[in-house]
């Protein structure tokens, strides 16, 4: 059993997903090599060597690895693949892009986005947008895997001291030319597309008070929503409304602040993955759908929460 993890990094630091992926690799076996392909990436390679569980760092340093183009990444991984039984990368935009290319070149299946490891050849992965979990087995000689990073916690063991060695660079494919990056502006996301939503109800008291929700939302990269009561009271405009008659949302995290939880509101957000409710009324119906709730004055709790994040 020899495992190769492909590191996601910016030539200086590892992206967090890399440590999660190494943690997943550690569940498969102890011989874990990490490939750091980049340009002037010694710092990132050194960081990889310190991740607990890593036994060796492989470095491919060349100008054409400055950004991980799929064609070049795949060719490089394939060039060293025969030494490994498992090849893992995080199921982020990075890993999703080139790993299937690796698998196809090796003529093996890819196991995408695994959230569990049953054995060396058997894995659990969510399908149908996470509504179903499938357990799949691969008989291919090399397992090419992308890892759902939220499913594996990084090891908290002491830092490692893995040594590094250079691997031969594969020539630039020349098929693709990188032109540039454009980072997303920091404006808050759309309600219906947001991963996190912070919503306020009549308990907010005024439109002015929504500022404390906005501050929390900006910390979380969240959208701001409201109950009908808040809209009716004129605190915010119609397009904020979450509920039966407003927008139907199902974010990963929904924070309901000062919302009692009328059925019309619940209908619009009850499919959210995690629901947090903050309300000073201990009998508020919103608590019946919440995963976590605080019976507290929102004007105290919300700024506290914002500060704690």
């Amino acid at each position: 059993m020899a495992i190769l993890v492909i590191a996601e990094h910016d030539n200086k630091q590892l992206k967090t997903g890399t440590t999660n992926t190494i943690a997943a690799a550690a569940k498969l076996g102890a011989d874990i090599s990490v490939l750091v392909a980049g340009h002037q990436c010694a710092e990132a390679a050194a960081a990889a060597g310190k991740v607990p569980g890593v036994t060796k760092v492989l470095v491919a340093d060349a100008a054409h690895y400055v950004v991980p183009l799929a064609e070049n990444m795949a060719a490089l991984v394939v060039s060293i693949a025969d030494k490994f039984t498992h090849i893992l990368a995080p199921a982020t935009g990075f890993g999703k892009n080139f790993m299937p290319r690796v698998a196809a070149l090796l003529d093996v299946a890819q196991i995408s986005d695994i959230s569990g490891i049953e054995s060396a050849d058997t894995f659990v992965r969510p399908i149908y947008a996470g509504n179903v979990l499938a357990t799949v087995q691969s008989k291919d000689k090399i397992k090419v895997i992308t890892v759902r990073i939220t499913a594996f916690d990084p090891s908290t063991a002491a830092a490692g001291t893995a040594g590094s060695e250079n691997v031969a660079v594969v020539a630039d494919s020349g098929l693709t030319q990188f032109k540039g990056h454009e980072l997303t502006k920091s404006a808050r996301p759309e309600l219906s597309a947001a991963r996190v939503i912070v919503s306020g109800g009549r308990g907010m008291g005024s439109g002015e008070n929504f500022k404390i929700l906005e501050a929390l939302a900006d910390k979380l990269g969240a959208a701001v929503g409201a109950s009908r009561a808040a809209v009716d009271s004129g605190f915010v405009t119609n397009d904020y409304q979450v509920g039966q008659t407003g927008k139907i949302v199902a974010p990963e995290l929904y924070i309901a602040v000062g919302i009692s939880g009328a059925i019309q509101h619940l209908a619009g957000m009850k499919d959210s993955k995690v629901i947090v409710a903050i309300n000073k009324d201990a009998e508020a119906p919103i608590f019946s759908v919440a995963n976590y709730w605080l019976v507290e004055d929102l004007f105290k709790a919300v700024p506290e929460l914002t500060a704690a994040l």
Partner: peptide
């Protein structure tokens, strides 16, 4: 190439919990 051994639905959301303070929530 892959064999699906089984499929299951993920565990249902358990009933929620009341928390003491913001620190516990975080």
């Amino acid at each position: 190439r892959l064999t699906t051994l089984k499929v299951v639905e993920p565990a249902k959301r358990g009933s929620g919990v009341k928390l003491a303070d913001v620190a516990e929530l975080v």
